[in-house]
Computed example of a mutant assay.
Amino acid sequence: MASDRIAVAAPIDNRAAGAPRSGQGTIPWAIKGELILNCNCTVFCPCVVSLGLHPPTEGHCQTWGGVRIDAGHYGETDLSGLNIGLLIEIPGMMSRGNWKVALFIDDRASDAAYRALVDIFSGKAKGTTGLFSVLVGEVIGVERQPVSYETDGKTRHITVGRKIEGVVYPVGGKDPDEDIVIRNTKYWMGPDITVATASKGRVRAFGRVWDFGGRSAEICQIDWSGPGKG
């Protein structure tokens, strides 16, 4: 399937030529659902508990992620049922910024939903994800892709076209029925992070070829909103 790709070397402006400003940063929005990340850290990502003040285990961060939106809106635009794929590179400590990010928007999204999700995940919509506008130094691309986010028991299966293929599941604890969860954090994604790993974490996009099977992963229930929050 052909993709809509925006080659981006500057901040995104998703308005059509001559269109009025979209009200970025003033439109009420909310997303509830789940987010997973799989990165190159060899043990559980230290960014969660250090809030980005400790470097990744490899000195730099390479991450892919998926977001499942169970319920969401941007103004009057419904975002429920859509999925998002992410690719993130961070040269050192998370808190120091200069991130490079690629965004993959569910190809089922309407044009209005597409624009809304770009605003939210670029930080322009402010609120919970507003920090992206400070931390992200370069958006390397935005594409429409078929994004699948499925749960089988405790295992999450993610595919983003032919770009990302991931299988993530919680790390086992002494009680097999209870996940290992780091609770009550100030992490930007959400306060409770399930410690996970990936049996598959393959990326082939924007010149990156990664395989993070067996590496660190996170599962988080998200409840994000804006513009007044964050």
Rank of each mutant, 00 (worst) to 15 (best):
C39N: 11
P11V: 01
E150C: 15
G33Q: 00
H157I: 14
D13C: 01
T57D: 07
D107R: 13
N38F: 08
G153F: 05
G23E: 06
A109F: 10
K124E: 13
Q62M: 06
G173W: 07
A19V: 03
T63S: 15
R5G: 10
S110K: 14
L82H: 11
I158N: 12
G172A: 15
S122Y: 07
F44I: 05
W188T: 07
L79S: 13
W224S: 09
S133H: 02
K32Q: 08
M94C: 08
M94T: 03
I180E: 12
Q145V: 12
V101E: 14
Y169A: 12
G85Y: 13
G59Y: 01
T63Y: 01
I219Y: 02
P20V: 06
A10G: 10
P176A: 13
G66Q: 10
G166F: 03
C41S: 06
A102Q: 11
V8M: 12
E76C: 02
G141H: 04
G97S: 11
P191W: 04
G127F: 03
S133G: 03
R144E: 03
S122C: 10
V139D: 00
P91I: 04
T197A: 02
L82Y: 13
R202G: 13
A71H: 13
F44Q: 14
A116L: 06
T57Q: 02
I36A: 07
V101T: 13
P20S: 04
L86I: 11
V49K: 08
T159F: 07
E178P: 00
F132G: 01
R96P: 00
D70I: 02
E34I: 05
D179F: 10
R162K: 15
I27R: 06
G23Q: 02
A9V: 14
F104G: 12
D106C: 12
L35F: 11
R156G: 07
G166R: 11
A196M: 03
R162C: 15
V168A: 07
I193G: 06
V134I: 09
V167C: 12
W29D: 14
G92K: 13
V160L: 09
G137F: 05
T63F: 10
Q145R: 12
S22H: 09
L82T: 06
R115D: 11
G226W: 08
E178H: 11
W99K: 05
S95D: 07
S110T: 15
P191Q: 03
W99N: 00
